[in-house]
Simulated scan of single mutants.
Amino acid sequence: MAKASITFEDINITVTAPAGTRLIEISEKVGSGIVYGCREGECGTCITKVTEGWNNLTEPSVLEDKVLRENMAGKHNRLACQAQVLGGAIKVKPV
């Protein structure tokens, strides 16, 4: 199974996680400052800036894309509760 290396820039920690893991799950385990509310991709509180490796995450779903647009999120922002790692290196930080 593929693994990804995820760096949480707000706490300067890099961890390895298996493909298919959601960013929010990893964030909770390491104590990153990514906040969340619903975990269902509807509230937008977990918007996260992907500073490197955005192509190493799953594509945004229609719902995630809608929530990101409604919140005027930047080009490389994702919902941590929806984005799943595929492999490779990824760097993220809370918005």
Rank of each mutant, 00 (worst) to 15 (best):
S61Q: 06
E9P: 01
V50W: 11
T51R: 13
D10R: 02
T45V: 13
P18W: 05
I11Y: 02
E40I: 01
E64S: 05
I26R: 05
N55W: 14
C46H: 08
E28A: 10
T48K: 04
K66H: 10
L57G: 04
G33K: 07
G20R: 03
A73P: 13
G37P: 02
V67N: 08
P60S: 09
R69F: 06
Y36R: 03
T21W: 11
G41V: 02
G74N: 11
V30Q: 06
T58M: 14
L23K: 01
G74M: 10
E40T: 03
E25P: 02
T51V: 15
E28L: 11
S32N: 01
A19V: 07
E9K: 05
G41F: 03
G41N: 07
V50A: 14
V15T: 13
N12S: 02
G53E: 05
E9G: 01
L68M: 00
D10I: 00
A19P: 09
V15N: 11
V62S: 14
S32H: 00
V35P: 00
T7V: 13
I34S: 07
T51M: 14
N12W: 02
E28P: 04
I6D: 05
R22N: 09
T48S: 07
C43I: 02
D65M: 15
T21F: 12
G20S: 06
L68Y: 04
G44Q: 03
R39E: 11
A19T: 09
S32Y: 02
I11L: 08
P18H: 05
A17E: 14
L68G: 01
V62D: 15
E59I: 00
D65V: 12
C43P: 00
V67T: 06
T58H: 13
E25R: 09
I13Y: 08
F8E: 08
N12K: 02
E59F: 04
M72S: 14
W54Y: 15
R69Y: 00
T14P: 01
I24A: 01
Y36W: 11
E28F: 09
E59L: 05
D10A: 03
P60H: 09
P18K: 09
V50S: 13
T51K: 14
A73G: 13
C38P: 03
K66R: 12
G41W: 01
V35H: 10
T16G: 12
I47P: 04
A19D: 10
G53T: 07
C38K: 05
V50I: 15
T45H: 12
T16A: 13
V35E: 12
G20C: 05
E70N: 08
I24Q: 03
F8M: 06
V50R: 11
E59S: 04
K49Q: 15
G53Y: 07
L63W: 10
A17S: 15
G44S: 00
L68D: 00
I47A: 01
I13K: 14
V67W: 05
K75L: 09
K49E: 15
T21C: 12
V15D: 11
N12Q: 01
D65K: 14
S27W: 02
R69D: 05
N55V: 14
W54F: 15
W54M: 15
D10T: 00
V30P: 02
F8A: 08
G44V: 00
R22H: 07
C38Q: 04
T45I: 12
P60L: 09
V50L: 14
P18Y: 04
L57C: 07
K66W: 10
E52W: 13
T45M: 12
T48I: 08
